[in-house]
Amino acid sequence: MIEITPALTVWYNTRCPVCDAGINWQKRRLIEAVEAGRIAFRDINLEPAALATHGASLEDIRRRLHAVDADGNLLVGADVAVAIWRLTPGEGWLAALFGNPLLLPATRFAYDRFADLLYAWNRRKGRW
């Protein structure tokens, strides 16, 4: 059997209800790609040291989405969202819009502020 290296392996926090719901919704949109092994979604709580070789801690990944592309490059935050949109049928326009060089800094800023709020909310709720 030939093993396929996913174009993108996304690490996320299933203990965050917003993150978990968002990824589950995205997985349904990407069912064919998931089944074909082109994209993988992994729960960081089951493999907390999975990205340690990239310098990413468990808390880093609980705070922001992280992904590794087929070349082994680490993507973080908004860059992960853009990469997922590129792979999602019908969502390439989101990647083109929010991932373009002029808008990407604002996309990253907005993503990071939302992620900070969500992380703080989850910590207050004891979701660790």
Rank of each mutant, 00 (worst) to 15 (best):
residue 1 M to E: 08
residue 4 I to S: 10
residue 4 I to N: 13
residue 5 T to G: 06
residue 7 A to M: 13
residue 8 L to H: 07
residue 9 T to D: 11
residue 11 W to G: 00
residue 12 Y to N: 01
residue 12 Y to M: 05
residue 12 Y to F: 14
residue 12 Y to H: 11
residue 13 N to K: 05
residue 17 P to C: 09
residue 17 P to T: 06
residue 20 D to E: 08
residue 20 D to I: 03
residue 23 I to Q: 06
residue 23 I to V: 15
residue 24 N to H: 11
residue 26 Q to Y: 06
residue 26 Q to W: 10
residue 26 Q to M: 15
residue 27 K to E: 12
residue 28 R to F: 09
residue 29 R to T: 03
residue 31 I to V: 10
residue 33 A to M: 12
residue 34 V to H: 11
residue 34 V to N: 06
residue 36 A to H: 13
residue 37 G to K: 10
residue 38 R to C: 09
residue 40 A to C: 11
residue 42 R to V: 12
residue 43 D to W: 13
residue 43 D to G: 11
residue 47 E to V: 15
residue 48 P to T: 10
residue 48 P to E: 12
residue 48 P to W: 13
residue 49 A to N: 15
residue 51 L to A: 05
residue 51 L to W: 02
residue 52 A to T: 15
residue 54 H to N: 13
residue 56 A to D: 03
residue 57 S to D: 14
residue 57 S to W: 15
residue 60 D to A: 10
residue 60 D to C: 08
residue 61 I to F: 04
residue 62 R to T: 11
residue 62 R to L: 08
residue 64 R to G: 00
residue 65 L to C: 02
residue 69 D to G: 04
residue 70 A to W: 05
residue 71 D to S: 14
residue 75 L to G: 03
residue 76 V to F: 01
residue 76 V to S: 09
residue 78 A to W: 01
residue 80 V to S: 04
residue 81 A to Q: 02
residue 81 A to P: 00
residue 82 V to F: 08
residue 84 I to H: 07
residue 85 W to Q: 00
residue 86 R to W: 08
residue 86 R to K: 15
residue 86 R to G: 10
residue 88 T to R: 02
residue 91 E to V: 02
residue 91 E to H: 03
residue 92 G to V: 04
residue 92 G to K: 06
residue 94 L to F: 01
residue 94 L to E: 01
residue 95 A to Y: 01
residue 96 A to Q: 12
residue 99 G to L: 00
residue 99 G to Y: 04
residue 99 G to C: 02
residue 100 N to C: 09
residue 104 L to H: 02
residue 105 P to N: 03
residue 106 A to M: 01
residue 107 T to E: 00
residue 107 T to R: 01
residue 107 T to L: 01
residue 108 R to T: 00
residue 108 R to G: 00
residue 109 F to I: 01
residue 109 F to N: 00
residue 110 A to L: 14
residue 110 A to V: 15
residue 110 A to T: 12
residue 111 Y to F: 12
residue 113 R to D: 03
residue 117 L to V: 04
residue 118 L to N: 13
residue 119 Y to L: 05
residue 120 A to N: 08
residue 120 A to R: 14
residue 121 W to T: 10
residue 121 W to F: 14
residue 124 R to G: 08
residue 125 K to F: 08
residue 126 G to W: 07
residue 126 G to S: 09
residue 127 R to K: 13
residue 128 W to P: 04
residue 128 W to C: 10
